[in-house]
Amino acid sequence: MKNGRTSSGKQNFKCKECGRQFVLVPRHQPQSQEKKIIDKLLLEKISLAGIVRATGVSPRWLQYYVNKKLALVLRVVNVTFKKKGKLTLQCDEMWSFVGSKGNKQWICRLAIDTRTKEIVGVFIGSRDLLGAKGLWDSLPPVYRQCARRDVRAERLYTDFWQAYSTIFPTKRHKAVAKNSGLTNYIERFNNTMRQRIARLGRKVLSFSKKLSNHIGAIWYFIHHYNASLSC
């Protein structure tokens, strides 16, 4: 059925069954090259409204495109092959919010390999014992195997959050203060994510309204970051 007109003056329609609004002849459908540019812009600290202004695509099309793209992002971290031996990890967590600051989300549990700088463990969920276990389970088998064996094989450095000491092997885990310098890499990566992902800013208007897109955007950046290390 007819449903008013768009900002450009075209007749707008609304589906009676699903409620979707559309025009019969869209003014502009982005081509593959434009989509590649949008994919790159999604990795920078720019809001969806900013991408609309920069590329000229319609806000509705961009939202549908982002929803579909982030839903397909792999939720498993990809890392290069590692041999058993001395491996050192730094782990940390960070918070953000979805919808409003009242909906605080501790959604990032990260582990970084200090030698390769790869993100080798990711868990997005609650800040509790389940979150620490999720991070441990997300580590590739070689890291978990080394941590359980030779005391010289691996070290796991974290802050003093109690859940880490409950889940991580006692002989390999060491809780340290921030001024020790033993968690510098992961803390720097946390800062990188806040600088590159607009959704993670503490005082921004480009925060996520949908949790699934929030999670997808984080995974999308992590996959890009790991891939860039091998370039």
Rank of each mutant, 00 (worst) to 15 (best):
A111N: 06
K104E: 08
K83A: 15
L110M: 15
N103I: 11
S100E: 11
K101A: 06
W95Q: 08
L89T: 05
T88Y: 11
K117L: 08
S96H: 04
T114F: 02
L110P: 00
K117C: 01
T116F: 08
E93V: 11
C91L: 15
L110N: 06
I119M: 08
F97D: 02
I112T: 10
K84F: 06
N103Y: 14
R115F: 06
E118P: 04
W106V: 03
G85H: 05
D92A: 07
D92G: 07
G102L: 11
K82D: 01
V98W: 00
C108R: 13
T116R: 10
T88G: 04
S96A: 12
Q105L: 13
S96W: 01
V98R: 01
F97K: 03
M94R: 02
T114W: 01
F81H: 15
D113T: 07
K104G: 01
K117P: 00
C91A: 15
W106F: 12
D92R: 10
N103L: 10
E118K: 14
Q90T: 12
S96L: 09
I112S: 03
G85I: 09
M94K: 03
K104W: 04
K117E: 05
K86V: 13
M94C: 09
L87K: 06
F81A: 14
L89H: 07
W95N: 02
T88R: 15
L89P: 00
W106P: 12
G99W: 05
N103T: 09
F81Y: 14
A111H: 01
K86H: 13
T114H: 06
C108N: 14
M94T: 12
K86C: 08
S96Q: 08
E118F: 02
A111E: 05
K86G: 01
D92H: 09
L89F: 06
W95Y: 15
K101I: 11
Q105P: 00
K82E: 05
T88W: 10
V98E: 07
K83R: 13
F97V: 03
Q105G: 00
D92C: 07
E118C: 08
G85C: 10
E93G: 10
K117D: 04
C108L: 14
A111G: 11
E93M: 12
K83S: 13
K83N: 14
L89C: 00
K83G: 03
E118N: 07
K117M: 09
R109L: 04
D92Y: 03
K84S: 14
M94G: 10
T116K: 01
R115W: 01
D113Q: 05
K101R: 15
T114D: 09
L87P: 04
I112V: 15
E93Y: 11
R109D: 02
S96P: 10
G85S: 09
K82C: 04
K83V: 08
L89E: 05
N103E: 12
T114P: 03
V98Q: 04
L110W: 00
I119S: 02
G85L: 03
D92Q: 07
C108F: 09
D92E: 06
V98Y: 05
A111F: 02
V98M: 01
T116W: 00
G85T: 09
R109I: 00
Q105H: 12
K101F: 00
K101S: 01
L87D: 07
K83C: 05
I107K: 09
S96T: 14
D92N: 13
V98H: 07
